[in-house]
Design a protein around this nucleic acid. Sequence first.
RNA 1: UGACCCAUGGUGUAAUGGCAACACAGCAGAUUUUGGUUCUGUUAUUCUAGGUUCGAGUCCUGGUGGGUCAACCA
Length: 558
Amino acid sequence: MSEIPVPEGRSLNFLEEIIESDIARGQKRVHTRFPPEPNGYLHIGHAKSICLNFGLAKRYGGLTNLRFDDTNPVKEDTEYVDSIKEDVKWLGFEWAGEYYASDYFEQLYSWAIDMINKGLAYVDDQTQEQIRTTRGTVTVPGTPSPWRERSVDENLMLFSGMREGKFADGEKVLRAKIDMAHPNMLMRDPILYRILHTEHHRTGDKWCIYPMYDYAHGQCDSIERITHSICTLEFDVHRPLYDWFIEKLDIFPSHQYEFARLNLTYTMMSKRKLLQLVQNKYVSGWDDPRMPTICALRRRGFTPESVRAFAERVGVAKRDNVIDLGLLEFCVREDLNRIAERRMAVVNPLKVVITNYPEGKREMISCVNNPENPDAGSREVPFSREIYIEKDDFMEIPSKKFFRLQPGGEVRLRYGYLIKCEEVVKSPDGEIIELRCTYDDQSLGGSSSDGRKVKGVIHWVSAADAIPAELRLYSTLFTLENPDDVEEGKTFVDYLNPESLVTVNAWLEPALGTAAQGEKFQFERVGYFTPDYDSRPGKLVFNRTVGLKDSWAKIAAK
RNA sequence: UGACCCAUGGUGUAAUGGCAACACAGCAGAUUUUGGUUCUGUUAUUCUAGGUUCGAGUCCUGGUGGGUCAACCA
């Protein structure tokens, strides 16, 4: 078994410990699975699960299956199947086999007949309402169904009638015969099959009865000989049932282990609510950059490496957690800082005329593409007498810690000249509309005519050459740190962040304009020059930080 | 007033009966042609009461707090 070591400086998480002790006890094989229901797009929470399942198997020389848990045809669709496959691939994982719970419908059905024959399952004629009320509550035991003691033959006949379509939806169900007084509600004669005259996205109208999750999942794991079936905490009460079916059917003993699902501040993880956001058009789609979906992260410029690094950093445990969104941003910044090429842009333009620069002259200035990586090379950016700088890069009455442009002060144009502000031009109502500056013609390339240094370095674009563009800045969709924690009488919709999408005009250096001639300007090529960004509500700020912190912008060519 | 799961800095995750650590966030400083990056320093942690033990974050018991479960969803 080829093993890959855990990252240096990190100790084993509890799942790795379980696997290592299994191996120590003689287990020869590690086989996991990632089992999404194709009823929505994958989000960052799934990314944690994907990285866990694939990562664990890889670390111990095992395999991981991709299995679609498609036992409820009313919610599922091939659109989701396709997106899930695309997202898992994008994250960088290869599955050993692609399976569907629906592939096993015939086997599951035949096992159900075995259960009936063993006297462990019966057809119940009660209504949904009756079944609900006779199940009891968490504190009071349930009561047995009047149909619980039907004969094996009658059950067999009725169950095959269910399959043949002799009954309407909801008319009958197949239930396991366990214990209506069991302290675990899941063990109070759980439903195995329900009647659903609904077309299934893969099996069409072949079936009109469909297995429930509890009856299907463990058996699917068993069929695929999954050794470690890893799921989230809320399934821990299902484990006794998972084990019960495997024991009664006497099939391959897969085992279930639970870990705490990922929660992120300001982020909604519920698939059901995300679907509502899409359906009610609060967002433009599943890949709206404000969504926590993997396709949205991709569109926003996240790299698969950064998402995997995030999954590794959040760790795995069994206690509920809320990860600071800042950690996700740290991970993408860490990666992008290494690989992203920088460009200059101005969002709030202030015109600057360099009075001692020859009129009509235009020169090309060499700019480094990525200070973190010399191999990224450089590009030529035009410079002329009239340029735009960021409004915020000038203060008429500077505060103490402000070291950018100010009256009589000097600043460096990034990769260009030192300029000195000689005059502030104002409109009749007092607004600053133009700066008149002089430049030091000896100051290109970091030097100056007399060796003096300046502290401030600012972005600029040549006014005549700049490409106007529309910049969309995205921040969190919700104003609430925990969007599930809504006040009485309100819903998550009441907490949508009105500033989650802000459109601003921007002026870009020409090289970006060329690239922007396509239909859409991809974020991963522009994200690093957009205005500073703080993802917390009300903190969307524009300043001269044009680093990677501004990870959420996308540009549309004008 | 049930069963099960969980409790370590602001947020996460380690420490497997023997010096409570790492990352993110925060703060301070240095470097820097991005107020970015990098580097240095720094603040801050075992829910509670008992018990076992030479020694408890860790084991035991009680309490408190949080979570999950009463879909013919997964």
